[in-house]
Amino acid sequence: MRQGRFLLLAGAATATAAAALSYIQHVTAPERTPPLYTAQDLCGAAYRIIDQHRLAREGHTGATVSLGYDSTSKSYCAVTVSDTTAGPGDMAVSLHAEGHPADERTTRSADYAGPVFTYPRGADVSWGGTAGPTTWHSQWVAFQ
């Protein structure tokens, strides 16, 4: 009888430990799901995405900084979008038309930074972004 009671208690302890471990893993490891937004969503339907650059370091969740162009208004849009909804944390995006003030946005959002817009009127543009520990910026480019 004593041995049966011990096995019953040991089984209950094992089940409790397994449930606690499952809870800890669930709380400490957020589920990675696809991003809620795309660059197209954030810039708007009129903008065609013309260039992108991946922002990631080995072992880190990343993001993509994208540049869009609206041929009707002759304007550019830039946005940094996390790869997942549990993204890299601090993110930033910048867009600068030569001879014009830069438009920059920094956010602690896990989803995106931006969008930022410029109307360069024929000027070259420079754009870039940051996601967690990774930063990238383009050279001056003329897409028009």
Rank of each mutant, 00 (worst) to 15 (best):
A110V: 06
R121T: 09
D111I: 13
A92I: 10
A86C: 03
A110Q: 12
T118E: 06
R105M: 08
S66H: 05
M91H: 11
G114P: 09
C77A: 00
G89S: 07
H96A: 04
S75A: 15
G68V: 11
A113V: 06
D70M: 03
P120I: 07
Y112I: 12
C77P: 00
T118L: 05
R121A: 11
V81K: 01
S66G: 03
D90N: 00
R121G: 08
E98C: 03
Y76E: 03
P120W: 10
Y69W: 10
E98R: 15
F117D: 10
C77R: 01
H100Y: 09
T106C: 05
A78R: 02
G99R: 00
T72C: 02
A86K: 06
R105T: 14
E104G: 00
S82L: 04
A110M: 11
A110N: 14
V79N: 06
F117W: 08
G87K: 07
L95A: 11
G89P: 00
T80Y: 07
D103E: 12
H96Q: 08
G99F: 07
Y76T: 02
D70I: 07
T80Q: 07
D103L: 11
E98Q: 15
K74N: 13
G87V: 08
T106I: 09
A110T: 14
A102Q: 13
Y112C: 08
T118G: 06
